[in-house]
Design a protein around this nucleic acid. Structure first.
Lengths: 227, 227
DNA sequence: CGAACTGTTGAGTAGACTCAAAGACCGTGG
DNA sequence: CCACGGTCTTTGAGTCTACTCAACAGTTCG
């Protein structure tokens, strides 16, 4: 079972009390095949989820059939808390084999939060994390040029994957199609932008998903005007 | 002092306990001139805020000088809770004269939340509201054609302003420039898209900010292929 | 080994951006 | 009250980016 060990985003350093430990009692683990649906668009929202390992995509399908990805979910990320409503607005699917998520019955979790302020704090922290991801995506979508968008996307992924130790080497868990549907670009444009960044010397590629970030500033400042 | 009466988004119907009442003790009211800054990008995040009346924009300014608006804030909306960090990532400015916001010291609010689960619930509800707005903006930015984006933006504003009673009549609190910076379009394109939707019969305009939605479906299905 | 999927590259087109200018609207001050 | 300056808004002309359609290379998997 290599590569399926749980990963905690926050390193488990001397913390007086681990909120996740307390939630373990109401949690169930679910392993997923690649492409497997966790829940569908408009399914009832009965559980909150947390990525243990692997990667997932959260998306909506428009009436015209176009798919729009709203979030990529990595180990440690929470998802599935529909805003107030009892219904999901987006579907969630595993992008990698060996993905495992933990499920927390919503009612139980809310009861726990009512009885223990530390759980409530943990829930606040998790929603703030979700807000940060959404804001980052909006900033990325606000870029006008395709290489800028792809570049800042790579920077965000690098930060989320915490690749400081790996020397800015990064393995993308998603396909070009996924990136295209996340950035609101066509696949061809994503591919061209990658080639562009490579030719420009901002990144190097080993295979299609193994990216090494060479010039971080060139990436998120856009393809810009520097020489 | 006409037009400056507080507006609650949730109608104050028979609700056993009003969480906002409990927060009033730590709250201070701040009236703002049009264009006035509530806080700046990277200011320390000491307070959370709530819009009492008026309208504000939340935005970032890029290194290249372009402004990107991340959220429009209307009466009842909370803002200013920076994700975990002690620093804001965006600036907030009033868009209308007669705007009033209420400020809640962050530490105090968190202490209140720890001692009263109903306050914690209220905070959860408010963050879910923020998440919903961000997701809507991502869905809008995901549209490929300018008239689609402007159209779905108008639908969202109509829903947020709760114009059911006014017969789909809507007064935009923001300029074309603000809309452009929200939709990641140029001002000219926003203007052309408006004229387009008008010519198409999806909306009518009285002045520049008074919009009447005639054909809602034509708006958020895009400019589409129907006839 | 073939089929399906993923990824890259090319050619042509359509939509959005920039630059430019003119018209509408607003608040101010004479 | 009206004239004025400034901002906001609209429209036009030309350029450029990204989309679509198409073909081909590389990979994975049955």
């Amino acid at each position: 079972m290599r590569g399926i060990e749980p990963i905690r985003r926050e390193s488990p350093v001397a913390r007086p009390w681990d909120p996740l430990r307390a939630l373990d009692s109401v949690m169930t683990l679910t392993p997923c095949r690649c492409g497997q649906e966790i829940y569908g668009q408009e399914d009832p929202a009965e559980c909150w989820y947390r990525v243990v390992c692997g990667a997932l995509r959260r998306f909506a399908v428009r009436p015209d059939g176009r798919r729009q990805i709203v979030d990529f979910l990595l180990p440690g990320d929470w998802f599935g808390f529909a805003a107030g409503s009892d219904q999901h607005r987006f579907a969630v699917e595993a992008m990698a084999s060996g993905t495992v998520v933990s499920c927390y019955p919503r009612r139980r979790l809310e009861m726990l939060a009512d009885s223990d302020p530390r759980v409530a704090r943990e829930i606040r922290a998790m929603t703030f994390g979700a807000i940060e991801r959404l804001q980052n995506q909006i900033l990325i979508l606000g870029r006008m040029l395709a290489p800028e968008r792809v570049g800042s996307f790579l920077v965000e992924m690098a930060e989320r994957c915490a690749v400081q130790e790996t020397g800015d080497r990064l393995v993308l868990p998603m396909s070009r199609y996924d990136i295209a549907d996340y950035l609101a670009l066509s696949v061809e444009t994503v591919s061209r932008a990658m080639t562009d960044l490579k030719r420009r010397g901002a990144i190097t590629l080993a295979g299609t998903r193994r990216v090494r970030i060479v010039d971080r500033d060139a990436l998120d400042e856009g393809d810009g005007d520097q020489d």
